[in-house]
Amino acid sequence: MTMVPSTQRRGVPLLSASLRIKPGLAVAIAFLVLIVVVAASASFLPYDAYRQDLLHRNSPPSWNHILGTDELGRDMLARLAIGARVSLVVAVTSTVAAVLIGIAVGAIAGYKRGWIDSVCMRFVDSMYAFPDTLFAILIAGVVKGQLNQSSTDFFSPITALYKMSGGLFGVFLTLSFTSWLVCARIVRAEVIILRSAEYVAAARLAGASDLFVMRRHILPNCLPVIIVSATFVVPSAILLEAGLSFLGVGVDPPTPSWGAMIASGVRSMQSYPHLLITPAIAVGLTLLSINVIGDALREHFDPSFRRGGEAS
């Protein structure tokens, strides 16, 4: 559907005022902080996420391994922690990149209008006709293949980065390419409203250049909608990363990833359900927390987004 730009939003209340911390929100923030701490301290855990112990494969939770071991006897907690790091790093970096692309396209389209706007938005609309997960799978195939293959001088730093990151960089590129659409639409709608504001007209009459008006007057005022659009991108990036790794086109093994852990959990879910349950709970609760926080942010910045909380 189309975003209905609201005009009553001017004057966003203070963050602390409307984020009266409700119990659900507090739990969500606490859980997310916990995940970040675990992800950051993953290297200091007593167990190595890569060390195999074939005598203790698929063992259920015990004192030695709090969450049990996987099909190669690797500690599940250590793997979950590294997986959290992978998920969060990919989600945050690709959200930043996607939001930047979205701002660029949305701002140019909304500010210039005319044929540039038509071309950009026609393109964005057409991209919505792509299946999002399937499109990500296609892109991931290209990115992975190109990065693995190319040995030209131009690509060699990128290829090196890709190999060093264990496939993370490929997932980052894929997610950035696929998730900027929402952001471009939201930013464009906002820029169209802002460019007709009186202070923008005044600045242009005073001889300010387009770039100056954009930087000083329009983009700072877009910040609330940019944050709102980021609240849609972050959870979908985590979801897509897990989905790609689930299918084996995401992060390369043996680097642990939540999606890949769930995939191997699904393969043995009938005999060793704990291999499925723990990563599933981790992914589920993380996404739930992010969505709860996102709802609160959306409600704060723009009550009109409250209508259900789904973009596109």
Partner: peptide
């Protein structure tokens, strides 16, 4: 909760 959970988790958990 339902919007957050990936479909593959829902499917797998339902089957289990």
């Amino acid at each position: 909760f339902c919007v957050s959970l990936p479909t593959y988790i829902i499917t797998a958990v339902l089957i289990v």
